Simulated scan of single mutants.
Amino acid sequence: MSEAAKAITAGPDGPGTGPRHVAIIMDGNGRWAEKRGRPRLLGHRAGARRVREIVQACPDLGISFVTIFAFSTENWKRTQEEVSGLMGLFRRYIEAEAQNLLAEGVRVRFIGDRVRLDAKLRGLMDMIEALTAHNTRINLTIALNYGGRDEVARATKRLARDVAAGKLDPEAICDETLPRYLDTHVLPDPDLVIRTSGEARISNFLLWQSAYSEYEFVDTLWPDFTRAHFEDVIARYGRRERRYGGVTA
């Protein structure tokens, strides 16, 4: 571990003040390619390569969970060429990285609605989840055909079915009930959400889970977002005071 990483992990108040779960909106791939006069899909390929570097950095920074926003429910509005290219990229990424992720101790999960995805991609997703199910070094969650509102709607349907079946008392429902029906029910809420590319919006990402997350909006396009950039963001997080609506004594 580098000296910078040690300082980040320790934070200003000693060990344990860094984020446990970091979520990332990986924005700017298309613009990165367009700035270079290249097809947008080339930027997505560059962005996929950047994922590996950031995931590899997480254990040194004390991060146990990282969730990346790969494809939203709104991204189907893009051109057919770009959507088809992205789906092919996801399939190739899983095929190429499965053994590397297994060897590096990465557990892979997917969140989002899989119904609209093609059968081959769904099969590869099932494969890599099963292959890495016993890994514990770092938890990588990939949000694929994911939208926060869609997730809450699907969770509410499952909850309603349990109420109708008599499995759940509606009077017992509280703010701890719905999270058990979300795609992320096995994950802690993110401590920090990062969005690259200079855009300052959350784009329907982890709406319920990020209620008390810290946010960092950085100008760097995702393919240019290096480990050094990541360490800088984590260091800034370590200097924040999280009060969850309370007041520090």
Score class of each variant (00 low, 15 high):
residue 1 M to W: 10
residue 7 A to S: 15
residue 7 A to H: 11
residue 9 T to H: 14
residue 13 D to L: 07
residue 14 G to R: 08
residue 19 P to L: 10
residue 22 V to H: 02
residue 23 A to I: 01
residue 26 M to C: 07
residue 28 G to D: 09
residue 29 N to F: 14
residue 30 G to M: 09
residue 35 K to T: 08
residue 37 G to Y: 12
residue 38 R to F: 11
residue 41 L to F: 04
residue 47 G to F: 14
residue 48 A to H: 05
residue 56 Q to W: 01
residue 57 A to W: 02
residue 64 S to V: 10
residue 64 S to H: 12
residue 66 V to Y: 05
residue 66 V to R: 01
residue 73 T to W: 05
residue 87 M to Q: 01
residue 87 M to F: 10
residue 90 F to C: 00
residue 91 R to W: 04
residue 94 I to W: 05
residue 95 E to D: 14
residue 100 N to W: 06
residue 100 N to Y: 09
residue 103 A to L: 04
residue 104 E to S: 15
residue 106 V to A: 02
residue 110 F to C: 05
residue 110 F to H: 08
residue 111 I to Y: 07
residue 111 I to L: 12
residue 117 L to T: 02
residue 119 A to E: 14
residue 119 A to P: 05
residue 122 R to V: 13
residue 123 G to Q: 08
residue 123 G to R: 06
residue 125 M to S: 03
residue 126 D to C: 07
residue 126 D to T: 13
residue 126 D to H: 06
residue 129 E to N: 01
residue 132 T to Y: 08
residue 139 N to T: 15
residue 141 T to G: 02
residue 142 I to T: 05
residue 144 L to M: 07
residue 144 L to V: 03
residue 145 N to M: 06
residue 148 G to W: 12
residue 152 V to P: 05
residue 158 R to L: 00
residue 161 R to G: 10
residue 162 D to T: 00
residue 163 V to F: 00
residue 163 V to D: 00
residue 164 A to E: 02
residue 171 E to D: 15
residue 173 I to D: 03
residue 175 D to S: 12
residue 176 E to K: 07
residue 181 Y to P: 01
residue 183 D to S: 14
residue 185 H to C: 13
residue 189 D to G: 04
residue 189 D to C: 10
residue 191 D to E: 15
residue 192 L to T: 02
residue 197 S to V: 03
residue 198 G to V: 00
residue 199 E to C: 09
residue 202 I to V: 13
residue 203 S to D: 13
residue 204 N to P: 13
residue 205 F to P: 03
residue 206 L to N: 01
residue 207 L to W: 09
residue 212 Y to H: 13
residue 214 E to V: 08
residue 224 D to V: 02
residue 225 F to S: 08
residue 229 H to Q: 02
residue 231 E to L: 07
residue 233 V to Y: 04
residue 234 I to T: 02
residue 235 A to K: 11
residue 239 R to I: 05
residue 247 V to C: 12
residue 247 V to Y: 15
residue 247 V to P: 09
residue 248 T to F: 03
